[in-house]
Amino acid sequence: MTRTRSPLLVWALAALAAVIALTVLMNVGPRSARTGTSTVSMPAGATSESLPLAASAPTGIEIPAIGVTRDSIMKLGYNEDLSLQVPPDAATVGWFSRGSAPGTNGPAVFASHVNYRGVEGGFAHLSALTAGDEVLVHRADGSSVAYVVDRVEQASKRAFPTAQVYGPTGDAQIRLITCGGDFDSATRNYADNVIVFGHAERAWR
């Protein structure tokens, strides 16, 4: 005699098969290309420089972990309300020129959009950085500074950590800023900022 399975048993077996299939896909499917931190190397023939450096404006920035390479940097100042100016387009990375120059003691502050008018911003993937990733800043005097990321924070714009971002430090540091959190379609603004904190590790020319 042929035995027929109950509808409940058939459903249970199908659900189990789906779970197994999903587990297999998760285990053998594509994985993130990142298996560790992303660093930068001193070019062959370059000469190490002692930190801190004399002041010199930034001319470019590289963040290998998130695929950012810019060979020009815009100078940023204050808005009328004393907030930091932002670049006028999606791709541009700006440097707060009233703050510290890269490689000098204090925080060198850089900003770019997460997106702008539907275009992916220069710092669109800033939140993907992790402690140990490196950021390379090129300077007008021909030198370069390699920074190591210490931490990544997301902070409400209503409680922005001004002192931590702009306050004096006893060594050369870096801050990378973009928008994050929920997007308010009415005001066209994000509720938070993503902030990367890091310190200068080495420099060369």
Rank of each mutant, 00 (worst) to 15 (best):
G118I: 06
V93Y: 03
L82M: 12
I195Q: 02
V68G: 03
A155L: 10
V109C: 06
L9V: 15
V19Q: 07
E80Y: 04
K75P: 00
D71K: 14
L53N: 00
T162H: 13
V152S: 03
A200F: 04
D71P: 00
V119K: 13
N193M: 08
V93E: 08
F197E: 04
G198M: 04
T69G: 05
T92D: 11
F160V: 12
T47G: 02
G103N: 00
N189M: 13
R3I: 12
R175C: 08
A44K: 14
S72L: 06
I20V: 15
P87A: 13
T69R: 14
D171F: 11
D81C: 02
S97Q: 06
V135Y: 03
G121R: 00
P87K: 10
V135N: 03
W95S: 03
G198E: 03
I73P: 00
P52M: 10
S97V: 04
V68R: 02
T104E: 01
E153A: 13
V19A: 14
C179R: 01
N105L: 04
E120P: 00
V114M: 04
V28H: 13
T59V: 11
A18P: 01
W204C: 10
H113Q: 08
T59P: 00
V40Y: 02
T23S: 12
G121C: 02
S97M: 04
A131W: 01
L8Q: 15
A65C: 06
A91Q: 15
S185G: 01
S100V: 08
L8F: 14
N79K: 11
T104C: 00
V149L: 02
N115E: 13
V28A: 12
T162W: 13
V145Y: 01
G180R: 11
W204Y: 13
E80Q: 13
L126K: 06
D89Q: 05
A108F: 00
L8M: 14
P161C: 13
A111C: 06
P58F: 05
Y190I: 12
L126Q: 07
H125C: 09
T187P: 02
F123W: 07
L76T: 05
P88M: 14
P30D: 11
S144D: 07
N115T: 11
